[in-house]
Structures are given as structure tokens and as C-alpha cells.
Design a protein around this nucleic acid. Sequence first.
DNA 1: TTTAATATGTGTAAAAAATACACATCAATG
DNA 2: CATTGATGTGTATTTTTTACACATATTAAA
Lengths: 247, 247
Amino acid sequence: MRNISQRIGRSASGELVKDPTRLVETYPKVPLTVDCVLFGFEENVLKVLLIRSDLQVFDGLWSLLGDNVLDNEELDDAANRILKERTGMSDIYLEQVRSFSHPARHPGGRVITVAYCSLINIQHHQLKILDHELHWHDVQSLTQMAFDHFEILTYCNQWLQKRIQEHPLGFNLLPEKFSMRELQNLYEAILNQQLDRRNFRKKFASMGLLIDVNEIENDVPHRPGKLYKFNFEKYEKNKRNWIGIDF
Amino acid sequence: MRNISQRIGRSASGELVKDPTRLVETYPKVPLTVDCVLFGFEENVLKVLLIRSDLQVFDGLWSLLGDNVLDNEELDDAANRILKERTGMSDIYLEQVRSFSHPARHPGGRVITVAYCSLINIQHHQLKILDHELHWHDVQSLTQMAFDHFEILTYCNQWLQKRIQEHPLGFNLLPEKFSMRELQNLYEAILNQQLDRRNFRKKFASMGLLIDVNEIENDVPHRPGKLYKFNFEKYEKNKRNWIGIDF
DNA sequence: TTTAATATGTGTAAAAAATACACATCAATG
DNA sequence: CATTGATGTGTATTTTTTACACATATTAAA
């Protein structure tokens, strides 16, 4: 093991490094991938888009949609590329969640991966299905996956549960015009928890971020609900920076 | 550019991969570092531990404490190693925040870094000062740093502001026994905001997580305050999983 | 056309939490 | 012993959260 001075890139004599390129060439290199946790919402159930693992050791198991990071490609770009390749969609909510680096997480050797979360309206996209290996899975029914992907999925699911309570991500999973019931179903699916209908509506009403479009549902076998749009402009203007110690 | 099937590691014929090691060998490799944002607290000011950059292009600028990730080293381990090397401390709060991957973020070429945050009690450790290049900096007074480290610091600072309101991190920055004033000073320094004294105390009192140790300050030039310990055991038992849509 | 089924739309009372705000007390200093 | 400077405490007000029930609109079936 080199000593500290060398490892942090400082010469022992204390003089400045003039050629950073040569310095970087001395760094160990690691295979790096991005794994996308693509969440969707269908039939009031939270889904995740998975592919059957192509590794024999994981025969029959499902895995997240991942790929190598290309040379000089930003991680965000890699994630967007995967999303585009699989769903045909761009300009979609997509966010880095965290890295996973256990040395034995990949059976082929050391591979570090960065997990990204995305929320996709299942209706709005055409899956780029190369074969029958791509599938929307119920999140709740999964128990085992290839690699450490179940751990990653679990982490991202919890991350999403927290995130959706503080940011209006959910609207990406809904049609542009949606009913209160659809919105509540979405929150209940993601939070995996029943919510009080009146208080839920009251909460969103008090935020003043829903626009009543003066239309009603037309394909339901019961009294139709009113339709709303989310007021993204108003939200962006008034983003709060909250103070509230709470643990 | 290879086609999708190849890039995701699947053979064109659709058969399973039997040798994952050979597969991984085909992945591009990237130099990977960890940068630690070591926050401290002294004289009621939030500080960050920085080192003077050793690159000539950044002459005079300060940078975070970073290092390469070693072969088969977990990212968490790399961060802990850096922390240990610099401060002599282990078993310290340390958490991954996010990765930064702009292709031009390092003048020596493509280097991806993973940022970690740590909170250190400045009194409790001995800086491993090799020379005079290591320094506790006021966070508020920084405007420019080497690499993208100012961006990383800003991100971590915001991350910390949010985190400390939901998790009891702050106690790592205080002595084991502390006064309410010290606790409030800490929150005010991190949140960069004045807080109402009575409401602050009421808030912490209502959480029931502070243990009155029946001692008082003895080195202050005014009426001494009572000292408290944080009840970590009780906190661990009662960790809340909160529901509260709010944006 | 009537009835049953089902989901929508709405309000209020009670409890809990957040906020604003003032004065007596204690210890040290001169 | 008076001054200085911080501690310790309570209450009234407002806001937010929670629990909870009934009339209404539409479809589908009788």
C-alpha cells in the first residue's frame, strides 16, 4: 500500500503536480454500471420494469435494467440512455439514488453500480421489447432477484416513498388529467398504506396546486369524478425550503 | 457503438452467459475516487476540513479530502479510511451522499467521485497534519474550490441541512454532555438560521430523547445551563416512519 | 322506470403541533 | 451590591392533523 502522500496524489517533496493526466493514469480503474429502477403504475399497483437475467448463475431470476457507463458519459446521461432504449421515452423524471459497491455483488468480479429511479406512465410509452424477457412486475410480490438488485430495489422503493411525500413526482405516473381517486390510489400504492379519502383531498386542496379542468371521468361504471391537472408552474415558483425538526 | 443486446451483456443469439468474468472484462473502466466532506463545529460556526490542492492548475485553492477507491474496496470503507487517516477517528457517522461524474470535472481526465458526509467533533480528534495544508474552514465563507468541490460541498451542505432535521446527527458534533444552548447553536449554524429559543427547547423536550444528567456547565461567565445526553437507545427503538405529504 | 350498487363530494369537532412572545432567576464580574 | 448576560419557564393564538357520516351522481341490473 502506498503511503498517504502518494495516494492523495501529492509528491513526497511537496511540490505541485504539473501534469494531472499522468496522475490520473496511476489511479486504479473500476467497471461502472448504471442500474435503473423504472417504476410504473397500473391497475392501482406499483410496478417495476425488469428483465430476465442473461447470466447462467442467475438463471430464471429478474434483474434491473442496467448498462455500462460509456467513456466520458455522465451518469445522468447513462441513465437517460437506458430509459430511452427501453421505453422510448425522454425528458422523464429520473434521479440518482445511490451507489452500490460490495466487492462480490457481481459474479464476474468487481463492478460498482449507481442506482437511478424513474417514474413512468405505463400507457405513454412503447416498450422496446427485444424478446419476451422484459416485464412489468408487481413490486410487492418480488422477493429475490439477480445480483444485489433486490437490495437496490428495496432501497429505491423506500427512497421513493419518502421522496413522493416531499416532491410532486407522482404526477409523472398519471395521465395529464386525473381524478382525485387516481391520485390517491397512486399514493396508496407507493406508500403501501391506506389513506383517509377526505383528508387526502383536503391536503391537496390546501396546497392549491391542482387545477380543476372542469371535466369529469367518462369511462367509469359509477359516478364520475372531476378531473384535475397539476400546476407545475406554481409549484416551481413557490418551492418551499422547510424547517421542521422531526425525528 | 455496440448494439443494445451486446451492451447489456446478452449474446445476440439469446443464450445465457456462462462466464461472467469474461463479460466484466469487456466493460469500460473508470478511475473512481471518494471525496469526504468532513463537517465540524467550533465557536458556533460550521466548519469543513479542507486541504490545499496539490495540482498546479488549482494553485492556492482548497479541496475536499479525497482518495482513490482501492481494488475490491467498498465505497463506505474507502470513506472510512480517509476519515481515519485524516482525523484518527473511526466509528463515526459517515454517509454516502451522491456521485459526481461530469466528464471535465477533473483536469487530468475522466474521474468519477462519490461524495460522503461526516460530522466530527473537532475536540475529539487529532488531525493527522502532515504539513500546514490541512485546515478547518468556515463553510459560509467559501466561494471557490478546486475541481467541482464547491459544488459538492454546497450539495452536501444542503443535504446535511435536511438530514439533521430528520435524524439526530448533530449529537456527533457535540460533547457527550451538552447544554441546550450548545445544541441550538449547532442547529442554527447548520441551518444558517436563527431559531426561537423557547420553541426549540420545547421541541426537543417533547421528543423525550434528552436525558438530564443533573449537571451544569462550569466554564461559562454567566448562569450555567443544565447538561443533557442524547438517548440513542430510545431513539433507535422508536424510529418513526412518517407519513406526511408536504411540498 | 325503478332499484341497487358504487363511488363522489363535502364539513365539523377535537386533538395536536407550531408560533409568537415576556419576565423572573441565577451566576459571575467589577 | 449593582450590573451584565444568559438560563428557565408558560400561555394564548393559530395552524395542522385527525377521525368520522351522509347526501348525491351515475351505471347496471331487475
